[in-house]
Write a protein that binds this DNA or RNA. Structure first.
Length: 279
DNA sequence: CGCATATCCTGACTGC
DNA sequence: TGCAGTCAGGATATGC
């Protein structure tokens, strides 16, 4: 759900909301959010520090601190970061698992009904500012681009379907279910096409489509689905869902060719495609 | 190694 | 209207 465009939108919000602010107090209310270290250790390492920068790698948010450690946050399926001030702080939303009080009297809160989301503080940072725990991530298309040659090398000889490969974070960091389907549509390729079956021209279209879809989705501040679970730091929804060509549109007409959008089952996951447009 | 499958979880939806 | 069952999918572990 929150994928690269949504996480990038939240990151931009954090630049204005928390960068430069002092962390006055941290309360960990949920039992599952902090699991790589004890909640007490996370609290100790955050309290008294200042947020220095707001970064992102794939779907991970990276909030660096003034002692060079980094607070890593992943929203997973249902996590929301909210920046609240004054009367907005009450009543506290159900499933609020972390509350960070900032020096200016505002709060950064983490709300996450399904408790898949995660917070941890890392001190093991590589030369590019990336925590060691995230070393497995592949290229981030927004930060580092997605050259056709890189994609071609990673797809060569692969039997797995395009959707499975595009959402593999070790290959490309940041793409999830929604954008994999939208990228395949824009490239006119079926999500169940095997990676190794693409011609050079098709790999070029796929790389181009990935860059374009992610760029457009960031410009639209991400996609908020029917449950409106995804919201930015200020609680605002995104608008890219209005431009989805196939995702969650099973049975509706393709706006390009008029054919009916289909929903496939790939393993346990859904994939949407237009059979008229995608080969 | 590559690929498939199961797991975590709650809320929204579906069908009776 | 209520209730049981299904689905949603991020990342990770495990099995082959």
């Amino acid at each position: 759900m929150p994928e690269l465009p949504e996480v990038e939108t939240v990151r931009r919000g954090l630049e204005g909301a928390v960068v430069g602010r002092r962390i006055v107090e941290v309360k960990v209310l949920g039992r599952r959010t902090v699991r790589r270290q004890s909640p007490a250790e996370l609290v100790t390492r955050l309290e008294g520090r200042k947020f220095a920068t707001a970064g992102r790698r794939g779907k991970f948010l990276l909030l660096s601190l003034d002692d060079d450690a980094v607070l890593v946050v992943h929203l997973r399926m249902s996590g929301q970061l909210l920046h609240l001030s004054g009367a907005q702080r009450w009543p506290m939303a159900p499933h609020t698992h972390v509350v960070v009080a900032l020096g200016d009297g505002t709060e950064l809160r983490f709300v996450d009904p399904r408790t898949f989301g995660e917070w941890f503080v890392s001190s093991e940072i590589d030369g590019r500012g990336v925590p060691l725990e995230l070393a497995h991530l592949g290229r981030d298309p927004l930060l580092e681009g997605l050259p056709t040659a890189y994609l071609a090398a990673r797809l060569a000889g692969r039997r797995a379907g395009l959707k499975a490969l595009l959402t593999d974070q070790r290959m490309i960091a940041g793409i999830g279910s929604i954008y994999a389907d939208e990228i395949c549509f824009r490239a006119k390729l079926r999500p169940d096409r095997s990676g190794g079956s693409l011609s050079a021209g098709e790999v070029t279209s796929l790389a181009k489509a990935a860059r374009a879809v992610l760029r457009d989705a960031v410009a639209s501040r991400g996609s908020s689905l029917r449950d409106l679970r995804y919201r930015d730091l200020d609680g605002e929804v995104g608008s890219f869902q209005e431009r989805h060509a196939v995702y969650d549109r099973a049975g509706e007409r393709c706006r390009r060719c008029g054919d009916h959008v289909e929903r496939l089952k790939i393993g346990a996951r859904a994939a949407y495609l237009c059979p008229g447009c995608q080969l």
